[in-house]
Design a protein around this nucleic acid. Structure first.
Length: 570
RNA sequence: GCGGGUGUAGCUCAGUGGUAGAGCGUCAGCCUUCCAAGCUGAAUGUCGAGGGUUCAAAUCCCUUCGCCCGCUCCA
């Protein structure tokens, strides 16, 4: 594969009106992009394709595991939810990792991963123990204050101390370290020895705790063990917040959603109670989400405001793995059918250690963008979320979100199962499979995949969109603007517009040379151009030019609509 | 948030203190019977923004914003 130039793609997007920088005349705003006429239509086509193939006729009418029909319904939920929704989902906590930077080495650490080690001289400890034996016996805690000795990066106390033991020579003047126990501390401790054999007792506390008693300036950096180079912990708050109500006090604080999925979980009970859906079934939701990214980068790939198309598919726990595989495979296939058919698209199953604790499987549909190549960037994640979300909301909202499976009850009764077993198995919190696609990333991938440079063509740049995605479906040209050709073209244009306006644009262009007009349509990604020429009036035929090959065929004038309908798969 | 690069017409870019340019595109007219063709003409800019130095700033200095690359981050 030849590497495509992202700069060239971005230039074309601007030039042809696919994507503009948001608020450009004011200098732009970091992490936000607008769509121009062609981009807006294209994104609408993508969302429409998702809606049709996921909600209206899920998985193209295929049957799911066990020959079950696949039923999905839509909801449209709000960007602003009750703040507790985001506490239950874990986003408020998870989006609030404080970070510290090392000003000298420019390294950044999660504050909760920095462990400060205190090493006490053994003789000092011994003295304290003997001098305060009565107070210690009474269960008192002794205030002992010594400067932090060094710090390490680790996920837990044990991991931190294990690191010290295994890499003790990094920490001068210590030469040797081993696990130890000590009466003074409840926590695990380590015994360390310097080159003269003097003994020390070391324990560790998380940085955040240590900062309650010490200034950041006396904490050694885990990168260099020098003091004075760390910044105070800073919150990287990825949640956008706002205020509900005109008074804008702290009590009115609310969040803009970081994903559309939670709106589905929160309305799960209502959908079950009001729409006669039965497990297994899916609920889809599309819309805008917000994440205050640390570093928006790579054109529209990591924007702060973006659109998602998410399906939450609810099923019985015993069938959940089968449904997970079903959706994972279908989603991969789906992206292929709308224009990402090449080797740039992969399905990547997450490794065990990448999975959330509640997940039995997660895959990403990934695309090799020019800016990620040779790596890949995530387009869609398909996650087995277990019963995690509904359970969380059940706990936080104190509302029962169990599903009563009447079919299961009848089946178990027929099988003569015990009352206890029937009651237990027919009432459950469904498991959930979540295919969550990024629409803006989808558009970006489709743009990158479609962008083609063919130096052998008179106009080398073209966009090879799949007809279903192409914002302009067809164009009509009179070969020259005389001899009655414009009149015939006008008529054909009117006919095609009338037939296809629901799915995309039909253009008419009679200005300038025919080559220039073809070139313009190539850059807009219009798949078919109908040209009225000198023969049309006599033979009632037109030529159709295929964008990708440049080849033309001659068809009957009154068959143009049918031709296009067929090519658009309608 | 740090470091490096960059910002001049719709796009690509030239312009190192002295009257803002080129190519392409766009538009108009002519010409033209199939691929950014030809001829003629036209429009288009607070030189990213703000401040400073100077008789004079796209150009030098400071601040700031956007974009690109690397680091960092990515429930």
């Amino acid at each position: 594969m030849t590497t495509k130039s992202m700069d060239a793609i971005m230039a074309l997007c601007k030039r042809r009106g696919f994507i503009y920088q948001a608020s450009e005349i004011y200098g732009g705003i970091n992490g936000f992009w607008d769509y121009g006429p062609l981009g807006a239509q294209m994104k609408k086509n993508l969302r429409e394709a998702w809606w049709q193939d996921m909600i209206m006729r899920p998985a193209w009418g295929r049957q799911g595991p066990g020959g079950k029909n696949v039923r999905c319904v839509p909801v449209e939920t709000r960007i602003i939810q009750h703040p507790k929704v985001w506490e239950a989902s874990g986003h408020v906590g998870g989006f609030n990792d404080p970070m510290v930077d090392d000003k000298e080495t420019k390294q950044r650490f999660r504050a909760d991963h920095v462990w400060v080690i205190f090493a006490y001289e053994e003789t000092l400890i011994a003295n304290i123990l003997t001098q305060n034996s009565e107070r210690l016996a009474a269960g008192e805690t002794l205030p002992i204050s010594i400067p932090p000795t060094f710090s390490v990066v680790a996920g837990s106390v044990t991991e931190a101390l294990r690191y010290v033991i295994e890499n003790v020579r990094e920490f001068r003047p210590y030469r040797k370290a081993e696990w130890a126990t000590n009466d003074l501390f409840d926590e695990p401790t380590v015994a360390m020895y310097d080159k003269d054999g003097r003994g020390f007792v070391a324990n560790t506390l998380p940085l955040i705790e240590v900062l309650k008693h010490y200034s950041i300036d006396v904490i050694p950096s885990p990168a260099t063990q020098k003091t004075g180079t760390l910044t105070p912990p800073r919150q990287f708050n990825l949640m956008f917040h706002t205020y509900v109500g005109a008074t804008a006090s702290e009590d009115d604080k609310a969040y803009l959603r970081p994903e559309t999925a939670q709106g589905i979980f929160v309305q799960f009970k209502n959908v079950v109670d009001t729409t006669r859906v039965k497990v297994p079934f899916g609920i889809g939701n599309t819309g805008t989400s917000f994440r205050n990214e640390v570093t928006p980068r790579n054109f529209t790939f990591r924007s702060r405001e973006f659109d998602q198309a998410e399906l939450e598919f609810f099923c019985h726990p015993d069938e959940s793995v089968e449904w997970y595989k079903f959706w994972r495979d279908f989603r991969m296939e789906w992206w292929k059918t709308i224009g990402l058919a090449g080797e740039n698209l992969i399905l990547r199953e997450h490794e065990k250690d990448e999975l959330s604790h509640y997940s039995q499987g997660t895959s990403d549909v990934e695309y090799r963008f020019p800016f990620t190549a040779p790596g890949f960037g995530e387009l869609e994640g398909i996650a087995h979320r277990g019963c995690y979300d509904l359970t969380q909301h059940q706990e936080h909202s104190k509302t029962k979100l169990e599903y009563f499976d009447q079919e299961m009850q009848l089946r178990l009764q027929a099988e003569g199962k015990s009352k206890e077993e029937i009651a237990q198995k027919s009432k459950y919190i469904p498991h959930c499979i979540e295919p969550a696609a990024g629409l803006d990333r989808g558009v970006l991938a489709l743009l990158c995949e479609a962008y083609t440079v063919d130096p052998s063509r008179p106009s080398p740049e073209l966009m090879k969109f799949h007809p279903r995605i192409a914002p302009i479906k067809a164009a009509v040209f009179p070969l020259v603007a005389k001899d009655g050709m414009p009149e015939i073209a006008e008529k054909l244009h009117a006919e095609l517009s009338d037939k296809f306006w629901r799915v995309g644009g039909v253009e008419m262009d009679e200005k300038q040379s025919i080559g220039k007009r073809y070139a313009r349509m190539d850059e807009a990604g219009c798949p078919f151009c109908f040209t009225i020429d000198g023969e049309t009036a006599a033979s009632q035929t037109v030529t159709v030019r295929d964008r990708d090959s440049g080849q033309q065929e001659r068809i009957a004038l009154d068959k143009a609509g049918e031709f296009l309908k067929d090519k658009l798969g309608m």
